[in-house]
Simulated scan of single mutants.
Amino acid sequence: MTTVAVLDYGAGNVRSAVRAVAAAGAEVTLTADHDVIDDSDGLLVPGVGAFSAVMAGLRHVGAVDLIRDRHAQGRPLLGICVGLQVFFARGEEHGVETEGIGLWPGAVTGLNAPVVPHMGWTQISAPATSAMFSGIEDERFYFVHSYAATEPPPGTIVTTARHGEDFVAAVEDGTTWAAQFHPEKSAAAGQQLLRNWLATFPGPTPSS
């Protein structure tokens, strides 16, 4: 069976992500053990809360270089919510700038919207080339965030959404995918997205 490691670095509310990936057809382990992660077919990086706190947690378990290496090696990687945000070069919160993992250039900044946080179900706008949203192009997904990236990373497939302004809702960069919304809270559409991710893994197709 396809194996996925969900990175355990102290982020809250990760059990729903573990359950959702398992329901999508993978064998899932919540772990910070580098050997277990290296042996897993896929790595999911969850993220809830502040950019700076997530980066501190990732550094604490030695995951920054681990994530960079996995991306460089072209091994399946998925970031969710702040897990997407930290893939960018930096985050700016309350006047404080924090260095990100730096898979992509650019900054994550406060949403320019009349109501913040952006919370609830929102329609995404996916390009025809998207594998992430195959079969779910017209669906709504569940967002909870006050910050976002607005500049698409060069050379990637970018899906956008709008809340006050257009922002990056998802990125597909080879085998590295990331979503600003929560697939694990997005009902059937989120489950299909996770199945789409597992279908990109080399080897046997995961069971459904």
Rank of each mutant, 00 (worst) to 15 (best):
P153F: 06
S130W: 09
E27A: 13
A187Y: 09
A189Q: 06
R19G: 15
E99P: 07
W197K: 05
E99D: 10
P117I: 01
F133K: 12
A113N: 03
S146A: 15
L103M: 00
A53Q: 13
G135N: 13
N13P: 13
L77N: 00
V18L: 02
L7Y: 06
V64Y: 07
V96H: 14
R195I: 04
V14F: 09
V61I: 00
N196W: 07
L78K: 02
L66R: 03
F87T: 00
V168E: 11
T3M: 14
R195S: 01
L84T: 00
Q180P: 14
G57P: 06
V168F: 01
F181A: 07
S130L: 00
V48M: 10
S125A: 15
R15M: 15
L78W: 00
T29H: 04
A131W: 15
G74I: 02
E172G: 02
L77S: 05
S40D: 05
Q73C: 13
T129R: 10
Q73A: 10
A148F: 08
A128D: 14
S52C: 09
V6T: 08
A63N: 08
E165K: 10
S207W: 03
V61S: 00
A149E: 05
R68F: 02
G174I: 12
K185M: 08
V6L: 07
A126I: 04
V116C: 07
G95P: 06
S186M: 02
A5N: 01
V64T: 06
P152C: 07
E151D: 12
D65C: 03
V14H: 11
V144K: 03
E99Q: 15
V28G: 04
A53W: 02
W104Y: 01
A128F: 14
E151I: 07
V64R: 09
M55D: 01
Q73E: 10
L193P: 03
F143P: 01
A5C: 08
V28N: 01
T2L: 06
L77Y: 07
G155S: 13
D69I: 09
E97N: 13
G120W: 07
V144S: 00
P204N: 15
S134H: 13
P105S: 14
G106A: 06
V108R: 05
S186L: 10
M1H: 13
G100R: 05
F201V: 09
P114F: 02
D65A: 14
I67S: 08
G100F: 03
G106L: 09
F87L: 07
P153Y: 08
P117R: 03
H34K: 12
V54E: 08
V45P: 02
M1K: 15
L58C: 09
R90A: 02
V45Q: 00
